[in-house]
Computed example of a mutant assay.
Amino acid sequence: MTMAKLLYSATMSLDGFIAGPGGDMSWMTRLPETGPHETADGLWKQVGSLLTGARTYGGDDPNAGTDQEGAFNGQWSGPEFVLTHNPPATSPPGVTFVTDLPTAVDAALAAAGDLYACVLGADVAAQCLAAGLLDEILVFVAPVLLGDGTPLFRHPGGTFVALDEISSTTGPVPTIRLRVRR
């Protein structure tokens, strides 16, 4: 049996931001239509669980109120693990609030089975990377500039993380899949 891998997946502006100022995600609804995208269109089928942070979980869904609301434009459903310092008293169905990173990662990987446990959110991804837990990064490069916001990766004071290319595509929304070198 194949073990789940921890994948950080994000759509990023050309200048490196995954959200605009204040976590604004409305820019995602203003992207030009690019037609089918083999990697993006099939990704949700490869995801067995989500690991998010509290800001991502409670943040701006650009598709709120539409049939595309939720993860992967509303196509995905499954267990979600939210890393937070302040878990609520009750959890919605399918959502588990966890207060420490190792427990959250272990639970997300166990729930994913032989699929990916997908990290959504820059802060949780950075924590996973710093702890040596992140396996892969998949970035979709959107043809826009935001100028400010939440970067794909931030580490105060800087850091060097070596990555190896697994695959890349060209086209209106290029992608790059990378393995975290250990």
Rank of each mutant, 00 (worst) to 15 (best):
A4W: 09
Y8L: 02
S9M: 02
S9I: 02
M12D: 13
S13Y: 05
S13D: 12
D15Y: 05
D15G: 04
I18K: 01
I18D: 11
P21K: 00
G23E: 09
D24P: 05
D24C: 02
R30G: 12
T34S: 12
T34E: 14
H37V: 10
H37P: 07
H37Y: 06
T39H: 09
T39K: 01
W44P: 00
K45Q: 15
V47F: 09
G48V: 12
L51I: 09
T52V: 15
T52C: 05
G53P: 05
R55C: 08
Y57T: 14
A64E: 14
T66I: 12
D67E: 15
Q68R: 13
E69N: 02
F72A: 07
S77V: 10
F81K: 01
F81G: 03
V82Y: 05
L83K: 08
N86Y: 01
P88I: 02
A89S: 14
S91P: 02
G94R: 01
T96G: 01
V98L: 10
A104F: 12
D106I: 01
G113E: 15
G113D: 14
D114A: 06
Y116P: 01
A117W: 04
A117G: 05
A117F: 03
L120A: 15
A122G: 12
D123R: 06
D123W: 03
C128Y: 03
C128I: 07
L129W: 04
G132V: 10
L133A: 13
D135M: 03
E136W: 08
I137Q: 15
L138I: 12
F140K: 02
L145P: 00
D148K: 03
G149K: 03
T150C: 03
P151D: 10
F153M: 13
P156T: 11
G157P: 08
G158L: 04
L163Q: 08
L163D: 13
I166K: 04
I166A: 08
S167L: 03
S167G: 07
S167V: 05
S168D: 11
P172V: 00
P172H: 00
I176E: 13
R177T: 14
L178E: 15
V180N: 12
